[in-house]
Simulated assay, not measured.
Amino acid sequence: MARREADSWTTPADAVAKMRVRFERGEFLTAFAAGRAFEPLGIPLHGPSAAQLGADLAAARAWVQEWEQRRPPALRLEYKEIGGRVVGTNRVPARAWIDGYEELWAVLGVGARVHRFTRLRERAESRSPALAAWCAANPLKTLANADEWERLVATAGWIGERWRPGLYVRQIDVPGVDTKFVETHRGILTELLAVCLPAERIDYDAPPSDFAARHGFARRPDLVRIRALGAGAGLPDAFSEISVRVAELADAPLSASRFFVVENEINFLAFPSVLAAVAVWGGGYAVNRLAPLAWLREREVVYWGDIDTHGFAILSRMRARFPATRSMLMDRATLLAHRDHWVREPKPTRAALPGLTPAETALYEELRDDVHGPAVRLEQERIRFHHVENVLRHLR
């Protein structure tokens, strides 16, 4: 008999490994936690056939002896008879059985883990039956968070019982819990809160990564930074520059008639004087910050961004919110006049941009298709300042 045939016979270690795979999927612990009666578990054993018994009786006997002497004591063996005229009838193991949870824990050597899981589930049940049910359905996640379980359960309970509108995550008052703890464990906390909070308490439109928004906590307010460019800007007389909450600015329109949205901070600070106008620092988030300002549709909005694919993408999004937005210094002539200042755009976009004018679309496609060179980019801070002044002189 070829050696490889004997190597294919099921060993006690093979049988235990099969059961361990199912344990690590959590199915045994889930059934145990749910109080379901254990169904005896039988594992078919691949052993010697009658022909293999005759071909190498010593190997077959060694296999039987391994099962009888080295198997875990909690494994019960079921036998069958095989043989023939040459070697006679022989009893060999046909199936290994586990008859109960305790036997299974003993075979796998997981008694301590099971005991710990039981205590964790009981702790959750003392706070909320829904949390206990989550534990039963997710035993391995429960065990993976065992060291922090007490604080996780207490945090979920506090949010369920003590939360009120306007609270920040910082105000969760649980021993050992701070903002860093919540941020580090927001994934598991989001899962726990999904089962123990009423559906109306969860904003499912907010991504799970945004813990505060998803669970009704106040977030750091969006601020918009505005600089007066001349008389009639609408800022208080004592201030040349202010930062205000977007939500408050939405209800208090400025009297300026022209708004220059600038992505680069130094360009924002150095922007030349323009009557009845302000500069707004976009900082890459211009659309998101300005979107709530409905009254801005009634003003003249001029956007100045980098000449690259993402700069045009931001411009397109600006026009989706403020259709009359004009671009400034984002044209082919400006690009070609500053060839020595070109850099490489790290990750160009190839998205369709419906909010561009024909001239802007043509330049965007040239950049996208590398007509002027690979991933060409002209950052706005690299444009010579007399070009800025000339364009503004024309706008005036």
Rank of each mutant, 00 (worst) to 15 (best):
V302Y: 07
R350L: 12
R350W: 13
L131R: 08
R85S: 14
A17C: 07
R127M: 12
P40G: 09
A320D: 09
T142S: 10
P272S: 08
L229R: 00
E298Q: 14
R123Q: 14
V244K: 04
L45C: 09
L193N: 05
D306E: 08
A6I: 11
V261H: 06
L131V: 02
F28M: 04
L120E: 00
E68W: 08
P198G: 11
Y79R: 11
G54D: 15
E148F: 12
Q380T: 03
D147N: 12
D331F: 06
L293A: 13
E24D: 13
T142P: 10
H394W: 14
M328R: 09
D308G: 04
R297G: 15
D369E: 11
D369F: 08
W304E: 05
D210P: 14
P292S: 10
A94P: 03
A132P: 04
A17E: 02
A375R: 13
V391Q: 14
V86Y: 13
V92K: 05
T11S: 15
L140A: 08
R170F: 03
V16F: 01
E200F: 11
Q69F: 10
V246S: 06
P346G: 05
V195L: 08
E102F: 14
A2K: 15
L353S: 00
A324T: 09
R384E: 12
D14H: 11
G355V: 04
L392S: 06
E24H: 11
R384Q: 11
T11D: 08
A146L: 04
G42L: 09
I242K: 07
H46D: 13
W97A: 02
I188M: 04
G311I: 09
D147T: 13
A154S: 02
V16N: 06
A37K: 14
G26S: 04
D222I: 13
